[in-house]
Amino acid sequence: MNGFLEFIHFTAETWRRLLTYTRQRQASFTVLLRQIMFTGYEALGLISFLALTIGGLIILQGNNILGNFGQGDLIYVILVTVVVRELSSILTALIVIARSGTAISTELGNMVVNQEIDLLLSFGISPVSYLVVSRLVGVVVATFTLTIYFNLVALLGGWLFSSFFSPINFNFFFSRLFAELSFLDILISVFKSMVFGIGIALISCYQGLKVNIASTEVPQRTIRAVVLSIVFVLFADILITLMFYIS
């Protein structure tokens, strides 16, 4: 219970520092840019591969099953429901956890061990302001952008794989797809990605900074950051889906 209250306090402190972030100097801006580069830009290859294959696999399975029932048109509904509503945000979040959540937790943990956090405090630089807020903003921006990118590539992958079975006009495919896609679907996908990004960044930073003295604590905290981030993402996904789709 104490740990949870501490996390709430840490979250509140991060929001408080976020409000004054625009007053921060260029030093924090460099940290932010590096985080966006690492979490976003450097993950593009993996996201592209995953999105392309996921989009293709859905088409492969969908065509196979739906074609038998003469319901081939439902493939567009399935693409929108599975990719845009669910998989894009969840898979992007899992990749962000695997790459950036672990990196953040490990880096901050090592900074504690090497007295780098003490050093920042001695300069009068709040570690929350300089390290956490920059990473929070960086991870949210990157997760948000990667999710949109995932959607685009997965849908493109769907068209590419469809074309293997029977050549299908690009414009026709996407006009049918967009007919099934509502603005709310896009909005919720983006909203989910932002919630996931906030959760992953806060949990990973908190766990990293919870390291006390020993370097052996670093991997333990990193594992905890990964587990808690996955649990958070799945629970948040269920809640958001219940809020917007079930009601």
Binding site: N114, Q115, E116, D118, L119, F123, I125
Partner: peptide
Amino acid sequence: FIFQEGALLSNLNIRENLLLPLKYH
């Protein structure tokens, strides 16, 4: 504050390390 082991931020180069407190404030 000068630490016993020196303490530099590992993800910054030496120039950035030296300038950080000045640039920040």
